[in-house]
Design a binder for these strands. Structure first.
Lengths: 211, 211, 211, 211
DNA sequence: TATGAATGAGACTTCATTCAT
DNA sequence: AATGAATGAAGTCTCATTCAT
């Protein structure tokens, strides 16, 4: 027990040192609430309950901290949204994907980084590009691959699968994303989301279902 | 009294005093390039070729100046995009609208304020809300009204015209807007825009054309 | 009179705006007392009785302010020390020069920038080089030119006038400069300076007077 | 108690614990390269390959570490430069001394501490004074004693031997030290040093050789 | 003894805003 | 109305130093 204790106590600053986690969590909140420019390192330190100096022990500067958060976001995105079963029936698969996707975008906490990144894409083009490639474009590509598979199997008839994938994803946002992101409406209800996803799927299949 | 008189006489009540115009034009450029936080009043003064002090003669503060620009944007939006002829044939009307809309969003100069407003919507919710209502929602409503008219005339069969309007607008953005706004691709070519709009219109009508 | 008054009042921020002078004077004192690194912009602002922000209205950054002071120092040096009359008799000329030179180096206020520049020459080599060229090397060259003239006139017999000039200047510092700069002794008395200069001159002429 | 015992047993009282040496060596390099203010304890720790914490095990603070280095410098100086043989012939002795002295000052690595100490003499007068007394003044005194001996032996005729000693040392620096310390020239060549020392010796003896 | 994570004071710099002219 | 000099609050980042292990 003593040994265990000591082990426990000594095993601290590893892969996911708790301070690093604290900082990441505090910073995410502040960045998402205030935007990149609006967030101050002081505020972040307070939110993470560490000293300002500690921030710089773990991250080279404000940008590096921000990008670390985007990195996590990217990973999360990859895990949550993209598990397409190429054999999956289109209607069901699209609905499931749509639901996961819109949940990610309209998280009640205002969680999605998409808005924050969009905001600084002009001044920090690399950050914007990287986020687009790692998160948004990847989504499109995965969905596109799935659609391709259904075309091959004869279920769907699509010319440009990349465009179709993008179209479906945009359809999922209809009436939901913009009001949410502009704070003109609270996060949409589950039911409303389901309706919109259903309508998107219907529309998509009306256009692309093989006859 | 004499003084008052002279004051009155010298007052320059022209709706659009040229200084005000100068400031608005310079500020728009700077705000759109750098974002709200990234734009400094000094930079704006330089771009407008007036002194910093003069900025505060015409606008109470940075936010007021920013909102004045959004106001103009809103007016422009209304004029450029929304002139629906309720009698217009759906396919043609939708394509024309789509083209105007996507041009507005993907202006090569990166002009659209949408990104900039999105950036500060969290910190200045009023600004976000107002912009949404005056620009984005209004677009949806106009298109929705048009669709309603075509439903009434028997051309289209739509349940929820607001949703349908939003869907069409989102479809127009597919594969164009996100890469552009994240700087992952240059402004799309005319031809590509036409293809996307065509596809959006086809899809929309496949779902909503009255049988 | 009224006109004169207004003229006077309006003629402010010109060549030598008084704020700029204030800053330069305050900064010189702080830099010379504390060194480049030891001097803080806050301290300088206090010494100059202006706000920290004002410092940056007149100078781009701390280095620019520091270099502006060196610039002044260089001008002063040029004016004070170097007015050699090529016809001047060697003994008298050398004594006069030596006195002016040593006064400059051992100013009671610790004024000379030489120590401060030396301190940062390693980290900011350009500053060091420029100061050496504009102040120290120039002194040597002027004296060297004078010596050359006296060689031509047959008074002196010198092989390497540059070395000779440097030798005389070093001789003037003997027993005075090092104790002063290391704070091991107060500024030397007038009499002591005269003795050292006399001895230096005697030694120099013993070696270089034409026989 | 047992613990105390073990502590006692494990204490490492070796005068020159290797860690201490490591620190001193790393710190010297960093201090000489960057100056007192420019050197950070982090950089020193890295250069010495120890942890930052260990620095404070051996030295109370940054100043104490710096002074320990000066202490070493002083010792070294004493050993290297000053071994005057009172019987030594003046010309030879002076040349040898001059060569050793100038080598010390113009070490290619920029090694000499003189510049670094000069830099902080104003802010830390004790440090400056102590260095002057232990290193510079001591040199003068030793040379002065030697000169005294040669005066006694009738070789030289000098009134103020302290001044003469200082004069010779300054002469040795002529055209060499200032360009080097201001980074306006690389370390002088052996040949150039020899020339300058020869000239200095010639001049010195021209003035002080007994007739 | 040796470590290195953590701290917080303080440095430089920017910028929205005010005010006398 | 227009200016631009001046301000001071606030931001990012560095660094000497401490402390638990």
């Amino acid at each position: 027990m003593v040994a265990a204790d000591r082990n426990y106590l000594h095993a601290v600053p590893e892969d996911e040192s708790s301070k690093r986690r604290q900082i990441l969590d505090g910073a995410r909140k502040v960045f998402m609430d205030l935007g990149f420019d609006g967030a101050s390192m002081g505020e972040i330190a307070r939110a993470a309950a560490v000293s300002k100096g500690t921030l710089y022990v773990y991250f080279a500067d404000k940008s590096a901290l921000f990008e670390a958060i985007l990195e996590e976001e990217a990973l999360q995105h990859g895990q949550v949204v993209f598990n397409f079963d190429p054999e999956g029936e289109a209607e069901i698969t699209l609905k499931e994907f749509g639901k996961a996707y819109i949940h990610l975008l309209c998280r009640p906490g205002g969680g999605s980084a998409i808005r924050t990144v969009m905001a600084i894409a002009e001044r920090m083009p690399d950050v914007g590009r990287r986020y687009y490639a790692r998160v948004l474009d990847k989504s499109v590509n995965r969905l596109s691959s799935y659609l391709q598979a259904r075309v091959a199997s004869g279920d769907l008839a699509i010319d440009d699968c990349d465009l179709a994938a993008s179209q479906f994803m945009e359809l999922c946002k209809a009436s939901l994303f913009l009001p949410f992101v502009f704070q003109a409406a609270p996060a949409p209800s589950e039911q409303r989301m389901a309706e919109v996803i259903d309508s998107a799927t219907r529309m998509f299949l009306a256009a692309y279902r093989a006859k």
